[in-house]
């Protein structure tokens, strides 16, 4: 057992010594957090309801027409400033002076089908931004007209919070944050083994009282430790960010398990293919395939992570244990492959 620890220490030390690697990890963490911030901003842009929640609507609309009470109420509820005009010319004059950004002309008398005339600025970018903001109020107005006409429509007036950011956080950000360190762990194992093969340093190692199993095991263990540290960092940052995370210990265990599974997969691939291009290529493809397949089979570790974090009552130790089982099978296969090599 002692040589194993020595080797593990050597692996970790080599990663720590290469400060470039630590820097690379830090920058990656930064990029990931940053991109998620950007994506959240983006989603709120295409998700007009969240824009209303964050109170960033700052739009002035000119209204023309006699029958605009209902529409005015709906628009004002969205935080849009309304100015009434007698006719289109007056409204256009106000637009030229920059008092309103867009003009809506409603018909004067009620009809079976109401036709609104929406006057938008010529500039395409501005026009589409206005349309994004107006989209939801127009839908509400349409529904109000529907009720007026006596057409029943169920579920149209439900409330609730806009779910996009919530779904994004628990079903994309968190799983990706735990997935990424594990992916890196696999890369580390594959690279480290491929390097030993290509530099012919493995033969030297094998002349010491070390077996294939302990060499590969030490490399996987080092990668798991690094992945766990990263996962812990991520979970701590998310908690600091006041993200409500249930089952924290299990989430950390899942992060470690993912790293162990990916590391084992990478080790298997590297021992089989020996050179770096092949090992990295096959590892990445196989990983994509396995993750996709687990989704199809309904046992995806990423879904398990989402559900654990969200506090799903039906998800717990049992689901995590299933992945321990998978890991044991993988380790068994790897051990068999290595034993055959030892025998040679």
């Amino acid at each position: 057992m002692r040589p194993f620890w020595a080797l593990l220490k050597r692996e970790l030390a080599s990663v720590a010594r290469e400060r470039t690697i630590l820097i690379a990890i830090l920058i990656q963490l930064f990029i990931a957090s940053f991109s998620s911030a950007l994506l959240l901003g983006l989603l709120s842009m295409y998700d007009p309801e969240s824009v209303a929640i964050s109170g960033r609507v700052d739009m002035r609309v000119g209204l023309v027409g006699a029958q605009v009470e209902a529409l005015t109420q709906i628009l004002e509820a969205r935080g849009i400033q309304i100015t009434r005009f007698e006719n289109l010319d007056a409204a256009r004059a106000a637009y030229q002076q920059g008092d309103v950004e867009t003009v809506i002309v409603a018909p004067d008398a009620a009809q079976a089908v109401t036709t609104l005339q929406l006057y938008l600025p010529h500039l395409e970018v501005r026009a589409s931004a206005i349309q994004v903001v107006l989209q939801e109020p127009l839908k509400q107005y349409e529904n109000a007209l529907r009720v007026q006409n006596g057409t029943p429509a169920r579920y149209m007036d439900l409330k609730g919070a806009p779910p996009t950011t919530f779904e994004f956080l628990y079903s994309i950000i968190l799983p990706v944050l735990l997935f990424f360190p594990a992916f890196v762990a696999g890369n580390l194992v594959a690279d480290s083994l491929a390097e030993e093969f290509e530099m012919n340093t493995l033969e030297t190692l094998l002349t010491t009282p070390l077996t294939w199993g302990s060499i590969v095991g030490a490399k996987i263990a080092a990668a798991i430790i690094l992945a766990l540290l990263q996962c812990a960092l991520w979970l701590a940052l998310l908690s600091l960010n006041r993200t409500e995370l249930f089952n924290l210990p299990w989430l950390l265990v899942m992060g470690g398990l993912l790293a162990a599974m990916f590391g084992t997969l990478a080790a298997f691939v590297a021992v089989t293919f020996k050179n770096r291009e092949q090992a990295q290529f096959v590892y990445a493809l196989a990983l994509m395939g396995l993750v996709g397949a687990s989704f199809l089979a309904g046992v995806s570790p990423l879904t398990t992570i989402s559900r654990l974090a969200i506090g799903d009552v039906y998800t717990g130790a049992g689901n995590v244990l299933m992945f321990v089982g998978v890991l044991l099978v993988m380790l068994f296969i790897l051990a068999l492959t290595l034993r055959r090599r030892d025998a040679r």
Partner: peptide, 8 residues
């Protein structure tokens, strides 16, 4: 019951 026409 609602249509919207866009003008420039």
């Amino acid at each position: 019951p609602l249509r919207v026409q866009v003008y420039d």
